[in-house]
Nucleic acid binder design. Structure first.
Length: 474
RNA sequence: GGCGGUGUAGCCAAGUGGUAAGGCAGAGGUCUGCAAAACCUUAAUCGUCGGUUCGACUCCGAUCCCCGCCUCCA
């Protein structure tokens, strides 16, 4: 299979370090608020990728961090009159709730910056010892120009970076650095009430970039397969991770860099961000949108493409999920009726063709659009078989099995889709359906329609088929 | 200014040097007592201007629009 590697800006044949196993690290959120749909997009993009690897039979070790200390955390905690650890606890919990609702698999490991302070200090000290870092008044900075390949990931030219940097100089900090493009590995404590840990350079806390280098190499090794994150992290975050990690280990840090596209909002399709005040949290959306719909919508856009978040696009996703639901229900109905099975070579052929097309599409840098197209083209073949006098029950069973596996790659739980859990009013519904069937036999259409309306008001949808009337919940 | 992405029917969205997949919505039809669901039929010459070619949406050049990164950010 092929993946688009940001490092080389082209699709490359994917080969894991260890056959059958994949190590991947994905930058997680800073936990100072509910996650927004941009965070969700990243989590969903890489969860979908992970699930496809698992579909293919790979064993995936998936590490994703929580940034639980940094300026934003400190500011927010201050604003709320609480502590950084309390803030972190609260929003990590919220993160897990939201991602569970979106059917995102928990990471194999969810390390946290504040739980790795000794390892971070060792890492920084190692960089100082090697001459890649220097201490100034309790801060430690990375000497970017010392790292020969600085800028390789984002194709940035160091000289031009300096120009850019000079426009945004944070005067005070810049004064301490040897060079404007140097970045902080360790930040000295600025105020007595600021959260801090003891270090060889005095009290302080880790810089943002260092935690990812430390945690990824600690849990996945000096070199690992895949590192993911949003496009906005390419520079400087990932650039800096490479510089830190490779300077320390002398090994190639990551073989494949994958970056997901943004979520845009509104008619102007602006990037969603806090500073533009147009961000939407998952927590809020899920008050009114079915989590499966949001999940499917975001998973159905290729990870590198931009997603425009809009009501209309969500509705389209909901419509498609509804088609899957209807087909699954109809198939289940046929599988449980008493008619004889009859082989349908066309359906059998379509099934294997779809499987092939689905996998070929996903093997091509996770081309989810083409993978879905393959499934869409299969539906009419299946539905036609379902509607025929004698269906191919063996083939339909295979279809259900395959569809479930395919939908799971997108994070959609087919079982939840058709959720036919029984409830206390089941017997009442059955009775009404039976009464309606009797009324229909007597051609009492008025009564028949009355019952249907009554059921509809209860959220029950009826389907009259040659094999009898079936009902399901909306 | 540097780097990168994007522009295909109302919307979402594939794709290739040889005459534009698929989905949604819309329209028509079939099935149905009527519905629902399903099935069938149905629409674009691919931002603009040049060039290469027997032939380009796909290659080259120019140009325009939009979006992002270069500063915290998924």
């Amino acid at each position: 299979m092929k993946v688009f590697n940001t490092l080389t800006r082209q699709k490359e044949e994917f080969k894991p370090l260890v056959p059958g196993q994949i190590s991947m690290y994905v930058c997680g959120p800073t936990v100072y608020n509910y996650i927004h749909i941009g965070n969700a997009r990243s989590a969903i993009a890489f969860d979908t990728i992970r699930r496809y690897f698992e579909y293919k039979g790979y064993q995936v070790k998936y590490v994703s961090n929580f940034t639980d200390v940094d300026d934003k955390m400190i500011n927010e905690a201050r604003a709320e009159g609480t502590t950084v650890p309390e803030l972190a606890e609260r929003y990590i919990k919220a993160f897990l709730e939201d991602t569970t609702a979106l059917n995102i698999e928990p990471a194999t490991l969810h390390p946290r910056a504040t739980h790795e302070i000794p390892a971070i200090i060792d890492f920084v000290q190692n960089l100082i010892d090697k001459g890649y870092a220097y201490e100034v008044d309790g801060d430690v900075y990375y000497r970017a120009k010392k790292f020969a390949n600085y800028g390789q990931l984002s194709d940035q030219n160091i000289d031009q970076l300096e120009e850019g940097a000079s426009k945004h100089v944070n005067d005070e900090e810049q004064g301490r650095k040897e060079d404007p493009i140097d970045f902080a590995l360790w930040k000295g404590q600025k105020a007595p009430d600021e959260i801090a840990w003891d270090s060889p350079w005095g009290k302080g806390r880790p810089g943002w970039h260092i935690e990812c280098s430390v945690m990824s190499t600690k849990y996945l090794g000096d070199t690992f397969d895949i590192h993911g994150g949003g496009q906005d992290l390419e520079f400087p975050h990932h650039e800096n991770e490479i510089a830190q990690s490779e300077a320390k280990t002398g090994q190639k840090f990551v073989n494949y860099w994958l970056h997901n596209g943004f979520v845009t909002v509104g008619k102007d399709e602006e990037k969603m961000s806090k500073s533009l005040h147009n961000f939407v949290t998952v927590h809020d959306i899920l008050q009114k949108v079915d989590p499966q719909v949001l999940r499917f919508f975001m998973a159905s856009v290729q990870y590198r493409s931009q997603i425009n978040y809009s009501e209309e696009n969500l509705e389209q996703a909901a419509t498609i999920l509804n088609r899957f639901k209807n087909t699954l229900e109809d198939v289940e109905g046929r599988l449980s009726d008493q008619t004889a099975s009859q082989a349908d070579p066309e359906l059998t052929a379509a099934l294997s063709k779809t499987k092939e097309a689905f996998e070929a599409a996903m093997d091509d840098d996770f081309n989810v659009q083409n993978a879905l197209t393959a499934i869409y083209e299969l539906l009419p073949v299946v539905n036609s078989n379902v509607n025929s006098a004698a269906s191919d029950k063996e083939a339909l069973k295979t279809f259900v099995k395959n569809l479930k596996a395919w939908l799971l790659v997108f994070g959609v739980d087919a079982g939840r889709l058709v959720k036919s859990e029984s409830s206390e009013d089941d017997s009442e519904i059955e009775a009404l359906v039976a009464e309606r069937t009797k009324a229909r036999q007597e051609k009492n259409w008025a009564r028949s329609d009355e019952i249907r309306d009554q059921l509809q008001a209860m959220g029950i949808v009826l389907k009259d088929t040659p094999q009898g009337t079936r009902w399901s919940r909306e």
